[in-house]
Design a protein around this nucleic acid. Structure first.
Lengths: 219, 219
DNA sequence: CTTGGAAAGATTGTATACAATATACCAGAG
DNA sequence: CTCTGGTATATTGTATACAATCTTTCCAAG
């Protein structure tokens, strides 16, 4: 809920003074505090006793940790889904995969709209698998992990080549699920996520290097 | 923190009225609310908007879900630990395993003390592996999952045969870690946990049956 | 006897006030 | 000029008061 506000608006590492948040949101400190406690439990902010909260910043190691767990959990979800997924759920995934493919030939009014659409359809694809796995706690854990890198990975959706590879993985996973082959579904899902991780890290490293060198020789 | 209070004191499914908790703990509603929000984020209680919180009750299916995830996560932790564990950590695990073995021949003043000791040493063994895996988020996730069934599994520690088998698994895991064999460590950890699951479920089912049949033909 | 609805009671959600704690700033001594 | 100590300010932690919402009860009509 407040997650969206925190993710986008407040830069990582910045102090979150309760009174300021309260006036920003037009409420008093009480509900703000609750939201902070909750966000802290989800790992989005850190609360230091008597010293307030800061928007949690994520290092490269943090991202590695999260992607490692995501590969494990989503791989497992895909494995379980292969035995239990319903025709309706398969249809929804099929539609999402097709939408992601079609979008390569579509043109959007604004780049933001396009990214938003891609993130949305991708979420449908992955959430349907988690749902089909039929483990509520698994879903909850994935929600915690998947949400975090969203603030970074927008760039991911800008490059055509990565999108094509991503689409290919989606089709492979879908195919394995249709065949009920849990092992293949898991393997493909793992690769899909670890590939996404590598793209993200490559980009982050390039970014850091650009910043380090002064960031003025860019095209 | 409040977790301990909730686990032991308030029966699952009971309403947690804020004012009552406040007077029980000698504080006002404000900190109680925060604790409830936090506990809800951790899955220990459920909060229904405008209708208050209830101590979450866990069905057999919930336990199956948790053990499934625990096998996945701890198995993964054991796999990672095989490559990274330090001699100090191995020594700590060795000591815990030995303590669990020795306790079979020891006699305790009270049964409660014995169970407490066993749970403690077992926690050291498992937490050291999670720690050696070197993934903070993995540790956090395991803490959430492992804590919950503690309210049920005390019975587990009463039977000699199960304890011997559990000790055997501990030795197998330890041996695999010493050899740096991640695959074996993962396989043994998975079996260890799934065996624990089966024992727990068997007991729960027997319990339900006893309740259903009137619970008066018991020795 | 059952059912609909309104009022009373109980409980949660929010705002505000005050106390406790940490941080920043300034003065004075070394 | 630097370091130490104290005071002032800012911010968090808690308590209490009030508003919003839900639940229960009771009464009347069918």
């Amino acid at each position: 809920m407040r997650r969206l506000l925190i993710e986008g608006h407040y830069p990582p590492g910045s102090r979150l003074v309760e009174e300021r948040l309260a006036s920003d949101l037009g409420v008093s400190r009480t509900p703000v505090r609750q939201a902070l406690v909750r966000a802290a439990a989800e790992g989005l902010v850190q609360i230091f006793p008597n010293r307030g909260a800061v928007a949690r910043s994520f290092t490269i190691d943090d991202l590695l940790e999260m992607y490692d767990l995501r590969a494990l959990l989503e791989g497992h979800a895909a494995y379980l889904a292969a035995q239990r997924i319903s025709p309706q759920q398969l249809a929804r995934m099929e539609a999402a995969a097709a939408a992601l493919e079609d979008s390569l030939n579509q043109t959007f009014a604004r780049r933001e709209d396009e990214v938003h659409f891609l993130v949305e359809q991708n979420a449908v694809f992955h959430q349907t698998i988690a749902e089909a796995a039929g483990n509520q706690r698994l879903i909850a854990m994935l929600n915690q992990i998947v949400a975090v890198p969203l603030q970074f990975r927008s760039f991911y959706w800008y490059r055509t080549e990565e999108r094509q590879i991503s689409n290919f993985f989606h089709r492979s996973i879908l195919n394995a699920l249709v065949l009920g082959d849990g092992d293949r579904a898991r393997a493909m899902m793992r690769e899909h996520i670890l590939y996404g991780r590598d793209v993200l890290l490559q980009s982050r490293r390039a970014e850091s290097a650009a910043v380090a060198s002064g960031e003025e020789n860019e095209p």
